[in-house]
């Protein structure tokens, strides 16, 4: 089985890389992009039967820094 983890900076934490991407889109002529937030997608290959709770524990302990980042888990 597989799980996909999305890690994003929390709302309210300024994302300087996302801002740079937004400016670059503007200079390429794409108008109306009012915000860009950049995050990470982490795909995990897991032993069958691994619980979502275990994946959440992985997020809490390593995959996300919950001081500044939020995460979501998708079992696929």
């Amino acid at each position: 089985m597989k799980a996909r983890v999305h890690v994003m900076l929390k709302n309210g934490v300024l994302d300087p890389q996302g801002e740079a991407v937004r400016h670059a889109l503007g200079s390429l002529g794409f108008e109306g992009v009012s915000g860009v937030r950049q995050g990470k997608v982490i795909d995990l290959d897991l032993a069958e039967g691994t619980s979502e709770e275990t994946v959440r524990e992985m997020c809490e302990k390593l995959l996300a820094n919950t001081v500044i980042e939020s995460y979501s888990v998708e079992l696929i």
Partner: peptide
């Protein structure tokens, strides 16, 4: 406490 992010000027 706290965290360190990419420099504001990148």
């Amino acid at each position: 406490p706290g965290a360190l992010l990419r420099n504001a000027g990148l």
